[in-house]
């Protein structure tokens, strides 16, 4: 009996993997199927990007501010106070900015996509699209995944800039540093090997947020309770994927650029 249960658990897990692969294939095939939904893509970019900007901005500002306040005593002890802008910009651009932005988007966007598509599934709107001969994957899934893959890197870049500004204000609580000097120090400490991997991984984070949100919503069960389950599970799974992708991306970046 126990062995049977274990077997059924494995079977479910494998079926889940299979469903992910099928869904990914459908998404990928539909990108190039023709008849791209530009207006829906632009609408999603607005919903995902513009509507999340305030939240990402505030969080990034606080992160920059807090990081300076936390780093300052340690760097003073080491006599490296002048390294504060450099330390902050590297930490923010390479790691903290992309990850914080992606996690916020997992909470805000993956859940909202999961809930939206889940509710469309429950109220048979997705079925209605399918039986009418329209293509719900192209209209609902492709547009959302591409919009998150495009907008989350932009949000991360904006978030980095706002975070650096937060750091500038924090530095000016205790010391006095000019705006141009601070930003010159920040920019000078960054190079191509900091920016490119950071942007590349935010594209993958964006993809994970959109893909998981769409998958969970599209595959939710038919019941009102399943809308909540889809939203919740989208946040948890997308957040987990963000950390997994981050770990892999950092390893690859280290091997390629920081030997």
């Amino acid at each position: 009996m126990e062995a049977q249960q274990e077997l059924s658990g494995w079977r479910k897990w494998l079926e889940g993997i299979g469903d992910y692969v099928v869904f990914f294939t459908r998404f990928f095939r539909n990108i190039f199927a023709g008849g791209f939904e530009w207006s829906e893509f632009v609408r999603q970019c607005y919903e995902i990007g513009y509507r999340s900007m305030m939240l990402v901005g505030i969080t990034s500002f606080i992160m920059g501010l807090v990081l300076i306040l936390q780093l300052r005593p340690s760097l003073i002890t080491l006599g490296a106070e002048s390294m504060l802008p450099k330390t902050l910009s590297v930490a923010l651009v390479r790691e903290i900015g992309p990850v914080i932005t992606a996690i916020i988007c997992a909470g805000k966007i993956a859940s909202s996509i999961g809930a939206e598509l889940g509710s469309m599934k429950v109220t048979e709107q997705i079925d209605a699209m399918e039986v009418s001969g329209a293509n719900p994957v192209q209209y609902l899934v492709v547009t959302r995944i591409l919009a998150t893959s495009f907008m989350i890197p932009l949000l991360a870049i904006i978030g980095d800039a706002i975070g650096l500004f937060g750091g500038f204000l924090a530095l000016n609580f205790t010391d006095s540093i000019s705006f141009s000097l601070y930003f010159n120090k920040c920019i000078a400490s960054l190079d191509f090997t900091d920016l490119l991997p950071a942007v590349a991984k935010t594209v993958l984070f964006g993809f994970a947020v959109g893909f998981v949100g769409c998958y969970k919503g599209y595959h939710s069960d038919k019941g009102t309770e399943s809308v909540g389950v889809a939203a919740n599970s989208a946040v948890v799974t997308a957040s987990l994927w963000i950390f997994i992708i981050d770990a892999i991306a950092v390893q690859i970046t280290s091997l390629l650029f920081y030997k």
């Binding site: 469309m120 109220t123 048979e124 209605a128 399918e130 009418s132 001969g133």
Partner: peptide
């Protein structure tokens, strides 16, 4: 499917 119409129970409006 283009030749078949399906009216869902709740209307299934978008």
């Amino acid at each position: 499917r283009m030749k078949i119409g399906f009216l869902f129970q709740g209307g299934a409006l978008y």
